[in-house]
Nucleic acid binder design. Structure first.
Length: 493
RNA sequence: GGCCCCGUCGCCAAGUGGUAAGGCAGAGGUCUGCAAAAUCUCCAUCACCAGUUCGAAUCUGGUCGGGGCCUCCA
């Protein structure tokens, strides 16, 4: 099955057919840089990171543009509060954004333009809209006249008359229609500004995305993404401006990700349940955060809670433990030239078939509107499959099973990478996870090792009472012991 | 008020006409000195009601419950 994606514009899933075969132009609304990013930004950016990765995995040459909106009312306000230049504030949070995205393990887009570097293009779009009678200047401002764009609200599917009833014209605005929106705002004293045919001013919100997307992707391009909350007014207005100016359809597929709730409540500053990415990463591994986000479909709401994150951590750990075990077995058992299997069991037949089918199942899930939850389900299946193979431990009698293990392991890594998962060396990831967990228990590794040695001796002496006492003592502190032929290891519960 | 979405096992979460993926948690078996880990087995008829259909969690209508957008917002 070919890729199908849910297009907000038509409210249904549609087959993905790019404008140019083999190539995809994709624009995602980045951030307005006036504060640290929160978990909602993390979700949006991770979701589109997956879209970007999967499109490339599918063989497309992707031009992925994600902007920084670095001039805006909120930036100016915040800069004034701090008594610094708005450009310095923007630069500070651009750096913070870059750090956060890198920490979350996102691939870099092909382009990351800034609004302030596209002022001439913005001005030319506004001029074109005025020339075409779709916008009008008023006292240094320029507004878009929504009634001149008949398909206005086609994305959000609202009714303009009802919208108008609730709309208000703010003091100081010169709108002819309350629904009209600013393309250009006259500068007030002390505000950053650029020269324009309407006097010094700055772009309104929305227009910068039209300018940057059309600049790098053309007047019509394939995919435009963002959070659900951007459907109205931001994306609706982008369509109006862009199509109004170019006379061409703006975007073929509109993709919108769902919200993040915190403990069942909408995340908001007033509720005090606002988590920044940097706060979260103090507690949770970035890959756990990514894993958690991808276990739900991107359009569904997700609930950020300790319970859910802990579940995600357990799940991801299961992957890494299986991968580590596979690594160890493969390191111990070099793959022979010939991999015969004189007596293939039914179990092995089933396991081999599952490993064989893994990629098809993964692709089928991802082709269905990026169903990462289902795709991860298939990967979990593969983990159980490989664990069965390892538990059977017939690598000597059936070298073929060793070859299948190797194949399954590399498939897991390759497909996981499409989701940005399992990208750390398994032993290293587990060790890190281990030491982070250990830090919370407050137990020193040397202490554990000493107790393990003492217990080993007790066991040798068949003093199981003492051996079990040691084990119970550690369990009480959150440390579990794992005995094996090769000795005793431990893990944090 | 307008527009839109959702309600699936204890928790999380896929599935949108063909008879319920997966994870976490739980029960039992194997393994183990005993455990843990791993593995095997088991564990839901899909908020409710009424329809359409040979057949519905999936479509229609209604009821109840939850949420979002309409103002800055991923």
């Amino acid at each position: 099955m070919r890729l199908r994606l849910y297009n907000t514009l038509h409210g249904r899933k549609e087959p993905f057919v790019p404008l140019t075969p083999g190539k995809v132009g994709m624009y995602v609304c980045g951030v307005t840089v006036y504060d640290y990013c929160h978990i909602g930004h993390a979700r949006a950016n991770i979701v589109f990171d997956i879209v970007y990765r999967y499109l490339r995995f599918s063989g497309y040459d992707v031009n992925y543009v994600r902007n920084y909106t670095d001039v805006d009312d909120k930036i100016i306000k915040r800069a004034n509060e701090r008594g610094i230049d708005s450009r310095d504030l923007a630069e500070e949070f651009i750096r913070a954004f870059d750090e956060d995205m890198a920490a979350l393990g996102l691939d870099l887009p092909t382009m990351q333009p800034k609004a302030t570097e596209h002022i001439p293009h913005i001005i030319s779009i506004v001029e074109k809209l005025i020339a075409r009678g779709m916008a009008y200047p008023a006292d240094g401002d320029v507004y878009f006249a929504v009634e001149k764009f008949p398909s206005y609200l086609k994305l959000s599917k609202r009714n303009i008359d009802e919208m108008r009833a609730g709309a208000r014209i703010a003091p100081g605005e010169q709108k002819r229609n309350p629904m009209d929106f600013a393309l250009w705002k006259a500068a007030k004293p002390g505000e950053p500004s650029w020269e324009s045919p309407w006097g010094p001013g700055r772009p309104g919100w929305h227009i910068e995305c039209s300018a940057m997307s059309m600049e790098y992707l053309g007047e019509t391009f394939d995919i435009h993404g963002g959070g659900k909350d951007l459907v109205f007014p931001h994306h609706e207005n982008e369509i109006a401006q862009s199509e109004g100016a170019s006379g061409q359809p703006f975007v073929k597929y509109w993709l919108h990700n769902g919200f993040v709730n915190v403990n069942q409540e909408k995340m908001s500053k007033s509720l005090g349940n606002f988590f920044t990415i940097r706060d979260i990463l103090k507690t949770y591994d970035p890959e756990v955060v990514r894993f958690f986000i991808l276990t739900a479909h991107y359009r569904s709401p997700i609930d950020f809670s300790d319970q859910n994150l802990e579940d995600a951590r357990s799940g991801l750990t299961r992957f890494y433990e299986a991968l580590k075990n596979a690594d160890e077995i493969l390191a111990r058992n070099p793959l022979p030239q010939q991999v015969p299997c004189p007596t293939l069991t039914d179990d092995e037949r089933e396991i081999f078939d599952k490993v064989e089918a893994l990629e098809d199942r993964f692709v089928e899930a991802m082709d269905d509107d990026f169903n990462t939850a289902l795709a991860i389900g298939h990967l979990f299946d593969a983990v159980r499959t490989l664990n069965r193979l390892m538990a059977a431990n017939r690598f000597d009698e059936c070298p073929l099973s060793l070859a299948v293990l190797k194949d399954g392991r590399s498939k897991l890594l390759r497909l996981g990478a499409v989701l940005g998962l399992f990208v750390t060396e398994p032993a290293a990831w587990l060790a890190r996870s281990q030491s982070e967990g250990l830090a919370q228990t407050g137990v020193a590794p040397e202490e554990i090792e000493a107790l393990i040695a003492e217990r080993q001796q007790a066991r040798k002496d068949r003093n199981f009472a003492r051996a079990d006492e040691i084990r119970d003592e550690l369990v009480a502190k959150g440390i579990e012991l794992l005995d094996s032929k090769d000795g005793t290891s431990w893990k944090v519960k």
